[in-house]
Design a protein around this nucleic acid. Structure first.
Lengths: 290, 290
DNA sequence: CATGATATCTGACTCTAGTCAGATATCATC
DNA sequence: GATGATATCTGACTAGAGTCAGATATCATG
């Protein structure tokens, strides 16, 4: 009754029936699920027909018919792609935008309704993030981004907040040597964000310096994504970027209050070196030759 | 990107595609999903055809055809109900049992595979329990049970374990006044277990005494089910049982290390009274007149 | 034993999703 | 401009899930 497998299967049963209810909410507007899915894909900015087909995993014949039915309803318009006349591009009409908004409202209401069931909303959200990250593990994409992008700034904010919780003396960004965003962009460096679906769940910065080495900065993995070996993937990606940029020596600083980070570095070829900067927070220093 | 509703919707997307994969596992044995669901319902002990129909929400015509197809495959046998010749009862044949076992093995393998994705299995399981409990909240059933039943003993074991964690001096059942099981069964008292699907997630005991009052004992809610106001539901059920038994005065003892319990009692009409027993663990005593 | 309710079964039907085989137009490339 | 690849469309098809209206047998009840 209580072994791990039973617990997973109980979850599966609970979710399967809930997803059934979710589907009916999509069917609540008198339109087959397939057509609703295509409409929503277009509403979410996927305009290229081939892209939608790929995203939803549909046969080209079926896709074509679904587009036709949405056109007949007056919800979308299609035109040929501007640079490739074989391709088609779909856009919502005014009516289509209204219908899409109605689906969005349905989804939002449903999500709010679910949250309202529970008095400890945050615990519930954390649990959902954890499961969503695990389920979509194979689809976590590492993307190089501007460190000033919305996603990057979110990650950094969470990173600082976590340091504040983990360091007994707290953490004040202004006291730390905050890397210049320019140093974490090509060609001097790089900033990589791990995206799970639309949610940033981790990041790492590669900061170029003028001292013959680059630094790894701001390695962070969202609590919901820990245990998926994402830290390792991020570090691998940062090293690859460094190699591409012709960097041969990497350094980083960290704190013994973050033991899992130290363990990661030690197990991936980094070796401890003496202090190489005067930042007040770190007390552990590593180096790795590429 | 990070508001609660987006997080719920991200979870929905993740789970919807995963559930698709779950369905295909059911389809992996060359049998339509409907037939597989009926076979599994029978395998899990639902033999009454009407009961299966109700559980799976099927039309009687469809149900009849699915049964026929399983019979044709030699997986089940049906006979008329022993006390009502209109009803039919389905049982697995030897082949059917083998096929059911194959589905079970598939489900178990899939569940294990999911757990293996994550290095922090327990955190993942706790998150799944929390979500499953929330999703099935409306289907949490309070059942009066023998306090010696497997479900009741599981709840009590978890209850004692939790007290051991919460009390600074630990908790030793043998030092506490362990209620006699007879006192928590009709007609002297009652023992109520909250079941979510097959998992016991809470309990409460109503213990009859010879002192003109009954006691509320062993109120416990599983961590995964907290926030669903289940404690309140259990207390309501215990009070209803007490009223049915003609009990007019209730007492209980608790400990200030369990603040959420004290808050629940205070907000539901209980008033604090002086110590009325010599149990070493409680330091707070309440009374409620029905 | 008549009557209405209940459980199951059967036949006829619909809708949705999806597959498959071409047809057509366009693109990239030599 | 010929050739093979690609994107879309159309027609013909299947399977699964489900609905609906009776038919039949049985039950509970007066």
């Amino acid at each position: 009754m209580l072994d791990p497998v039973s617990r997973v299967r109980r979850f599966n049963r609970a979710v399967t029936s809930a997803v059934g209810a979710l589907d009916t909410s999509f069917l609540g507007r008198g339109r087959p699920l397939g057509a609703a899915r295509v409409l929503n894909a277009i509403g979410h900015g996927r305009s290229d027909v081939a892209e939608i087909r790929d995203y939803l995993g549909l046969d080209s014949g079926l896709m074509s018919r679904l587009l036709r039915s949405l056109e007949d309803e007056g919800l979308i318009e299609t035109e040929t792609h501007e640079s490739d006349a074989r391709r088609r591009v779909a856009t919502l009409t005014r009516t289509g935008r209204r219908e899409f908004a109605a689906y969005e409202a349905l989804s939002n209401t449903q999500a709010e309704g679910f949250l309202a069931q529970h008095s400890q909303t945050e615990a519930l959200l954390v649990a959902m993030d954890l499961i969503a990250s695990t389920l979509t593990r194979d689809r976590i994409a590492l993307e190089e981004m501007n460190p000033r992008s919305e996603q990057a700034r979110y990650c950094l904010g969470e990173y600082y907040a976590e340091l504040g919780r983990r360091f007994s003396q707290g953490f004040d960004v202004s006291l730390s040597r905050d890397p210049d965003a320019k140093d974490m962009r090509r060609p001097r460096g790089s900033f990589i964000v791990a995206m799970s679906d639309t949610l940033p769940i981790g990041c790492v910065g590669l900061k170029g310096t003028d001292h013959g080495y680059a630094e790894i900065k701001r390695l962070w993995v969202a609590p919901a994504a820990r245990g998926l070996r994402l830290g390792r993937r991020l570090m691998d990606a940062a090293e690859s970027a460094a190699r591409e940029l012709g960097i041969t020596l990497l350094r980083l600083d960290t704190n013994s209050a973050l033991p899992e980070a130290g363990q990661l570095y030690r197990s991936t070829g980094w070796r401890e070196i003496p202090r190489f900067n005067d930042d007040p927070y770190p007390d552990l220093f590593f180096e790795k030759r590429l």
